[in-house]
């Protein structure tokens, strides 16, 4: 019995696929299908690179970590229990890649996850760089504590709900809420300071080059 034709649902760009295509790709990749995995890679490549670059504040390091992430994802895929949870799982692997790198390299101090309701000192050293507008945003992100930055980026960049972030990071939803709130307040404060610097620098454009001297 013929049915009416369904409309084609073609997708050329990553991210606009229907969720069930994603499930199919993940299910196939789990069984070792390299073509499906390659499509998953293409779908998340840009997003994971952006997430990691902003999380560690360095594009090149973000690239290295993205490579690590996709390799780890391929290796761990057979253990993925629920295809529907692929995206949070992918971000969890990316986050862990960044955390272990930062711990290894001591580039940034990564404190253990703790109850965000407890007091945590705001470490926002005064910026000394001469900065532009998007640089101010990047720099403000950099000055957030890693936990706050992770939660904020997962919320804004990853598009995850607080419940998803909580699952992904294995912390309580309440802590996520607190980290996000604190992140936003830290961001406001740092950005305000940076913008203040910028205005100050605009008045005296040659005096605040990093490491430089006034000409």
């Amino acid at each position: 019995m013929p049915h009416s034709l369904s409309q084609p649902r073609a997708s050329n760009t990553p991210g606009d696929d229907a969720p069930d295509l994603l499930d199919t790709l993940v299910a196939r990749a789990r069984t070792g299908d390299r073509a499906a995995f390659t499509l998953l890679f293409e779908r998340y490549n840009a997003r994971i690179c952006a997430y990691l670059a902003r999380l560690v504040g360095d594009d090149d390091l973000g690239h290295d970590l993205a490579q690590e992430t996709f390799l780890a994802v391929w290796r761990a895929l057979p253990q993925l229990r629920d295809e529907l949870r692929f995206e949070p799982w992918l971000y969890r692997i990316a986050t862990n890649a960044a955390r272990s790198h930062l711990r290894r390299g001591r580039t940034l101090q990564w404190l253990p996850w703790q109850d965000a309701e407890s007091s945590e000192a705001l470490a926002t050293p005064g910026p000394e760089e001469h900065i532009g507008n998007s640089e101010a945003v990047s720099l403000a992100l950099k000055h957030l504590s890693p936990q706050c930055r992770t939660c904020l980026l997962l919320q804004i960049e990853g598009g995850f709900s607080q419940r998803e972030i909580a699952d992904l990071l294995s912390i309580s939803e309440k802590s996520v809420s607190a980290y996000v709130s604190r992140a936003r307040e830290q961001f406001r404060e740092v950005y305000r300071r940076l913008s203040g610097e910028r205005q100050h620098c605009a008045d005296q454009p040659h005096t605040q080059q990093p490491g430089g001297t006034a000409r």
Binding site: T38, F41, N45, A46, C49, A50, A53, R54, D59, G62, H63, A66, Q67, E68, F70, L71, W74, S134, V137, S138, L141, L152, L153, I156, E157, R184, F187, R188, Y191
Partner: peptide, 27 residues
């Protein structure tokens, strides 16, 4: 806060990886 979201989303995107990780291809 909404302006903050927009400003973070509007950050210039880093280049994506040019291809699958070489380590994966070796694997």
């Amino acid at each position: 806060y909404r302006a903050m979201d927009s400003s973070i989303r509007a950050l210039p995107a880093p280049q994506p990886l040019p291809a699958l990780p070489p380590a994966l291809l070796r694997l």
